[in-house]
Amino acid sequence: PLAAAYFNQETLQQRLLTLIEGARETWTYAIFWQSSVDVASGVSLLGWGDGYYKGCEEDKRKQKATNPAAAAEQDHRKRVLRELNSLISGGAGGSSPDETVEEEVTDTEWFFLVSMTQSFVNGSGLPGQAFFADAPNWIAGADRLALAPCERARQARELGLQTMVCVPVGTGVLELGSTDVIHQSLELMNKIRVLFNFNSFEIP
């Protein structure tokens, strides 16, 4: 019960932030996928628990969409961003439009936002596979992401990510993504174990 009490949104966000901001490598985001079981169907599900988006070099480059398809994609992303902003600020017109929703939405920002809508049923997708096998899955390199048996990994590659890592921790899966190629690191795996050891009664 004590461990459960510590496992709340605030400490989870703090753990994600500590991991990403304190890492030697440059990670773009971290997501915790929370496991649950649908009582009626018995289906095991991994859904959004929390996430931390740090960003990457892409965010610093102000690329203006130069072709019609890219411009249309940006329009679509900004429209979705406006709707989401409206949702969390209490309805349309609840907040004044600002650069938060009017500036370009980068590929990795978009990937992170789309992730909030995703879930993985009965061991599907990279997070589901890691959870089901109770083993980490570390994919480094765009070519390896392209070959991964997972639609999410392929989408990640298309949106500029080069490394995806899924590590089963406690009641879910920790996923890390980067636009850099990052090879497996024992140091990071140990850090994850310490930060996400939900059996521990100590707040990291």
């Binding site: 949104q9 959004w48 929390d50 610093k60 209490g90 920002e109 992170f112």
Partner: peptide
């Protein structure tokens, strides 16, 4: 709005806050 689960709502709020910080840091002035 009521249908948006709390975990996603809080994550979205944080995402927008951080995005604003990033954009402010990148602004020329």
């Amino acid at each position: 709005n009521e249908d948006l689960p709390m975990a996603r709502k809080k994550s979205l709020q944080r995402f927008f806050e951080k995005r604003k910080e990033r954009l402010t840091a990148l602004a020329p002035y």
